[in-house]
């Protein structure tokens, strides 16, 4: 299992993560080693009949569907990088240059 530099770049784009060219060789090597290690589970024969296991309650419990003030000690203006008039401010949308991903 070997992850190429192009694959790391493609995955980084999917993950919305800047990855510099300098770290690509090490990152590619480490991802390859991790993926090679975890791929050992494929040595176990296919187990299609196994019911998926998810811990926790058997069914989701819903709260009453009612509008209540959210009990926060302070609002988003205190912790957001930029916030005005009830909106989080971000730069313009720009181009989505990699529609292929």
């Amino acid at each position: 299992m070997s992850v190429t530099h192009d694959e790391v770049r493609r995955i980084a784009r999917l993950a919305e993560l800047d990855v510099s060219d300098e770290v690509l060789p090490l990152l590619g090597e480490q991802m390859s080693r991790i993926l090679e290690y975890v791929a050992q589970i494929n040595a176990v024969p296919a187990s299609e009949g196994v019911k998926p296991f998810v811990p926790g309650p058997d069914a989701v419990r819903f709260r009453a569907d009612e509008v209540k003030p959210w009990p926060l000690a302070f609002g988003p203006a205190e912790f957001a990088p930029a916030f005005r008039d009830g909106f989080f401010l971000v730069p313009k949308l720009g181009q989505f240059e990699d529609a292929d991903t």
Binding site: A12, A15, E16, L17, L27, M31, P91, G94, F96
Partner: peptide
């Protein structure tokens, strides 16, 4: 300069190496 670049630079600079590695492995699988 745009929101996409904001996401990528913030996440690229804000996460440390182990988190970056796991996010990439997770996205890969």
């Amino acid at each position: 300069e745009d929101v996409r670049a904001l996401y990528r630079t913030t996440r690229g600079d804000g996460f440390g190496p182990e988190v970056r590695r796991r996010v990439l492995v997770g996205t890969y699988v």
